[in-house]
Design a protein around this nucleic acid. Structure first.
Lengths: 282, 282
DNA sequence: AGCGCGCGATACCCGACGGGTATCGACCGG
DNA sequence: CCGGTCGATACCCGTCGGGTATCGCGCGCT
């Protein structure tokens, strides 16, 4: 199975429309139809049910969509990591660390400073990515290592080390009645009708239904709270980021948040090992 | 990057010889040379240093060898899992469970029986594979789930649930002097010159140097011990497998062995979830 | 030193296959 | 009944993957 065939199939499976998929791929529709048919013949499996009015995935097609995406990510990772390794003239290739914009505001600078002070440190580039995107950028080679936050992020398929665990606080406009309380329960924060909890994007980039505003990162979120349009429950370490117009109230019954450092399991480079060692010693 | 190019590169990188690699791939040598050159041009990276007498990997080449193998495994997994999904006419596609030959002799039948009794159970095929091969068969799609034994097997890149932890015992010929002892220390077993510890294959299939005999699975091993040619330290659950000619002596200071059930992180099928749930309830 | 040989690179040819355009056939909606 | 949409089919062309023949280079043997 060639990656071209996989790319074609994934495009059709996502669009469920040969014409649109062909346009997305930059080719004409007939060769695409032929390529999919040929893939089906070679696999001995019907992947798509064509109803001349609609295209649907068979069970085998669903399997290939899931597995094919993972395989294409792995190929993309091989490509990117090889290019990066080659673009370095001498010494170690440097690392790309992925983290959510606005998260780990305390930990990240400490980690970068401590690592830079190590004798065999290499350059570390920081890649800020949207919520839930870190696993993806690790898998497709855009990053080598990431800071994740349990229990929100999935660490499936990654090697990890736990770094810190912290309680969560409710972040509210300073003027809100609840902001004066010593502590809150999750239920309190969820049931404030004038301050809905925001909606984070899911793994596929879409938003769940609900009343709250859609946010992409923590900076957006804090702005919305300051405007009195939302509330949120965040790890304690966000306190330094809050302006005077925002209040933080402990929420003891919210799940504790653990920050972990994670990396793809098969990429055990010298530089990565050093960064992980530094992180666990903080 | 096409999988054909990756296959070609991995072959050359493993053989470090264009002629042999070409023979292995079933093509002539000139097209192989050309394909590698083209891959290097497209990546903008030198992957191999040709010295007209020897071929060596550059740092970028080592990266591509590692990442390329992972990518090829992912593609192979997509192929195999799709074929299997398609070869089933109706209902769930069934599961393939990988385990070491001769290991988990107690747990495995209990697990299979308990799972078969579940209301929504599907067929489970057992794939016996050599030591250290389970991670590989999971990654390249030959199996869906595996029983691994910590701390020997690596669970890197897999989702796992712990099942049981057990102490280890020394397995000796019943007539051996040490067999009469109530317990032994690791050092005792290691220092018996007439009963060397066997050598297990490493991840790449080769054996480490040393005095002991080479073994591929537990059945071979038990035969060698019965012949008085080796000793071994194994988990307690091997006791039922031992004939009367073999003795088991506890070794309290040997590391405890934990059996875990493991699966590739992105393959969360209904059937797999049921099997894992059954396993954790045992 | 000279020769042979092993090995990768180059040159050249052929057939297969990927991609394009034109068109068909089925199906749905007005 | 007709027009429009969408996937399949037919057919053509250019590229590219693979084969054979051969070269160039450097090591090692005598």
């Amino acid at each position: 199975m060639e990656t071209r065939e996989l790319r074609y199939f994934v495009a059709v499976a996502e669009e469920l429309h040969f014409g649109r998929a062909a346009r997305r791929l930059g080719i004409a529709q007939p060769p695409l139809s032929r390529a999919i048919r040929q893939l089906e013949r070679r696999l001995g499996a019907t992947l798509l049910e064509r109803d001349s009015r609609s295209v649907t995935l068979t069970p085998a097609g669903m399997v290939l969509l899931r597995e094919g995406r993972a395989a294409l990510d792995a190929v993309a990772a091989a490509d990117r990591r090889t290019r990066r390794a080659a673009s370095v003239v001498g010494g170690e290739p440097g690392l790309v660390l992925a983290t959510k914009a606005g998260a780990s505001a305390e930990l990240l600078p400490k980690l970068l400073d401590a690592y830079a002070a190590e004798p065999d440190a290499v350059a570390v580039e920081v890649l800020l990515c949207g919520i839930g995107q870190q696993e993806r950028v690790l898998r497709d080679g855009r990053a080598d290592v990431a800071l994740l936050h349990l229990p929100f992020d999935s660490t499936a398929g990654l090697d990890t080390e736990e770094l810190v665990t912290e309680q969560q606080v409710a972040v509210l406009p300073a003027t809100h009645p609840l902001a004066a309380r010593a502590h809150l329960r999750t239920a309190d924060v969820e049931s404030v009708p004038d301050l809905p909890l925001p909606r984070w994007p899911l793994a596929d980039g879409t938003y769940p239904d609900g009343p709250g505003p859609e946010v992409r990162d923590h900076v957006q979120l804090l702005q919305l709270i300051a405007l009195g349009r939302a509330a949120a429950v965040l790890p304690e370490s966000c306190r330094p980021l809050l302006g005077r117009d925002l209040a933080a109230v402990p929420v003891p019954d919210a799940p504790a948040v653990t920050t972990v450092i994670a990396w793809p399991p098969h990429s055990r480079s010298r530089a990565l090992a050093g960064l992980v060692r530094t992180a666990t010693r903080l």
